[in-house]
């Protein structure tokens, strides 16, 4: 069997399977991460002192602990407390919480950049505080946070490769297994690298499109 045939028949199907798992890790983690990030960002800027403190502590911990360590805790640590997660669930929890911590920083910065007058104008119309945040502040802040959050999403695609450390065999994990069986390290990891590159490129394009669709006079990102 020729080299190309071997890769095409044996390696690629296996890698595509891993790629599927990767995508199934990335998409929910991205969604949960964003939701968490927005919520935490809002609590940090508009919360009461207690929620503000809790949110800051959350961010400090989840940005401070190495992600692998967090994954180990979710997967290997919690069973000691009688809490069991599948490798897949533990990975999603780990990625979402970590990603949320980073997103919240971008969201917080964007929230702080919205002028106080916007809040005053909404309150003067009779908006509740929550209504003001939801209808006036967030729509503006999220537009500003988008480039940063997009960056975090791209990171997420790549650090999803850590899931194999807790036996959730995604793209990188699959590659490692096949590579150690076949010793074709270079070829396999090059292919994997290209897979990630394709994913990040597609994600980048999607984000650009979203930015473009949400663009409003006065909120353009010049030159980006």
């Amino acid at each position: 069997m020729g080299e190309m045939d071997f890769i095409q028949n044996e390696v690629l199907p296996s890698l595509f399977e891993g790629l599927g798992t990767s995508i199934l890790l990335i998409i929910p983690s991205a969604v949960f991460g964003l939701v968490i990030g927005v919520a935490i960002g809002v609590f940090r800027v508009f919360g009461n002192p207690l929620t503000e403190k809790l949110a800051s502590t959350y961010v400090a911990i989840f940005r401070g602990f190495p992600l692998v360590v967090q994954l180990f805790i979710w997967y290997f640590g919690l069973p000691h407390l009688g809490i069991y997660f599948s490798p897949y669930t533990a990975s999603i929890i780990g990625f979402s919480l970590c990603s949320g911590a980073y997103h919240s920083e971008y969201v917080r910065g964007a929230l702080l950049s919205i002028k106080r007058g916007q809040l005053l104008a909404a309150q003067a119309l009779g908006f509740t505080r929550t209504g003001t945040i939801v209808s006036v502040i967030l729509p503006q802040a999220l537009r500003r946070a988008l480039p940063g959050c997009g960056n975090e999403l791209i990171y997420l695609i790549k650090y999803s490769s850590l899931a194999y450390m807790i036996t959730c065999i995604e793209l990188t994990g699959k590659g490692k297994i096949i590579a150690s069986e076949t010793f074709k390290f270079t070829e396999i990891f090059m292919i994997i690298g290209i897979f990630y590159l394709v994913m990040t490129t597609i994600a980048g394009r999607l984000l650009q499109y979203v930015e473009f669709r949400l663009e409003i006079p006065g909120f353009e990102h010049y030159g980006a």
Partner: peptide, 28 residues
């Protein structure tokens, strides 16, 4: 909030909602 609806406020620097059109600013 009910009171504030009955007391309109105009600001020196307008404070229009920057992400909304003129129409949407009035509708919201």
């Amino acid at each position: 909030n009910a009171y504030r609806q009955k007391v309109g406020m105009i600001f020196q620097d307008f404070n229009l909602f920057d992400h909304l059109t003129a129409l949407a600013n009035v509708e919201i």
